[in-house]
Design a binder for these strands. Structure first.
Lengths: 234, 234
DNA sequence: CCAAAAGTGTTATCGCTACACCCATGA
DNA sequence: TCATGGGTGTAGCGATAACACTTTTGG
């Protein structure tokens, strides 16, 4: 396949470089993390950067973003969504490049940290980020804002939990996203009133002596909730 | 300037066609309209299409969208926002083209209809659209959903009104966006409780014998509201 | 004088917030 | 036995929703 296309249409249009950049948030009990890596190519070689790649002629934009994610984390089933385009003329002194930013959300586990290390990538605490190249700082800020807003009307947080989880785990997740404490009783009440959780007989005892009951989403109800766009927590 | 760039970086990356498409909503008392035109170029020549254009090397994505808007409506100061990218490989049989869709919102006036006519563009009732090319139907649906969601936490509707407007006008606007009737008393109460409106001495008598008082936004309060992202109406 | 739209208040309900004590358990 | 996190209920407040009559005025 020829890079500049063999088709007979649109022959006068400019051809541009199109990149995807991924803002990858990691969720841990003590806060949100961001995955950054040291750029391998010039310009700005070795500086801290979001992970990204150019979009190829034979892949969709979304697949390009998935490819980037897989390469740098090994993961494929991660919540990811488009943030928006960054298309000013001079954003990249290396050339005219339009970036389509995507943000992803994942639960951080030890294995993820190791994978990241292999690629010279590193997880940073969200409020202790190093200087980033280009407009990546702006992308991160925009992604955070979108994430928080989104969490209000889509059950985003749920994407981050294992199949079975406890209510305190779910609450901590939202506390991390919103960066503020939520009332335990009110949170439980609200969540349970949605009737999307099924209480299991098992308990998780990893974080307390007493143990907390595990829950699971009822798939049909959960799906319904996603579609209706339920107003969530705050 | 060379189309395929003279810079020394990123030489191995594919170069793609990037387009902007604009979903232009027009607001009238009797409902939302959409601006469509008959495509001038092959493939799909003469079929109904959103308005769009390829992004040039020397313009930002946003400016490309503004350019499209200006060409087809003559307007420059219109509320417009990015909707998202449409980047699947086969979306355009003419070539590999990534589209970045934008949606815009404007108050429809007679003059706009004339301008549109000159360009063989036409305003359609939102629920009487003709078949559209490519994935434009999908773009319109996505834009509508985003518009309605957005209207809940940003004072979008206000962008559509003239400087002086009546409360019934504002209400009709939200009724058109949400496609349902709103209670007159509750609407007025809620709007006034926000303290962003200044009541003027004049009345608008174009739509009733009694006449309705004109109002104006208090710029500082309005700005504040935009930034805080007030929860709105429903 | 009447048609047509503008303007106005009250009440019931619901959801959110704030808040404090007991429970189960492993060490 | 005690330290730690899990689990529970209630009362007050504010916001929303439902609802009907009066006012103005051009024709």
């Amino acid at each position: 396949m020829n890079k500049s296309s063999s088709k007979p249409f649109y022959v006068d249009a400019d051809r541009l470089l199109l990149a995807v950049d991924c803002i990858i948030f990691g969720f841990e009990r003590d806060g949100l993390k961001l995955l950054l890596f040291q750029r391998k190519v010039a310009p700005f070689q070795q500086e801290w950067s979001l992970i990204g790649s150019f979009v190829k002629t034979q892949e969709s934009v979304r697949n390009a973003a998935k490819r980037v994610l897989k390469i740098h984390t090994g993961l494929t089933n991660v919540f990811m969504e488009e943030l928006g385009s960054y298309g000013s003329v001079d954003r990249d002194p290396g050339d005219r490049v339009i970036a389509i930013a995507h943000y992803a959300l994942m639960r951080l586990q030890e294995e993820d940290k190791q994978i990241a290390a292999e690629y010279k990538a590193q997880w940073f605490d969200i409020d202790e980020l190093p200087a980033l190249i280009l407009d990546h700082q702006q992308m991160v800020e925009d992604a955070l804002e979108k994430l928080r807003r989104k969490a209000r009307y889509r059950p985003i947080g749920f994407e981050l939990l294992p199949e079975k989880f406890t209510i305190p785990q779910l609450r901590v997740l939202y506390e991390v996203i919103y960066q503020r404490a939520l009332d335990r009783r009110n949170f439980r009440k609200k969540i349970l009133s949605m009737n999307v959780l099924e209480k299991l007989a098992e308990k998780d005892k990893t974080s307390s002596r007493k143990g907390a009951y595990l829950y699971r989403f009822i798939p049909a109800k959960y799906q319904e909730m996603v579609e209706k766009g339920v107003d969530f927590v705050i």
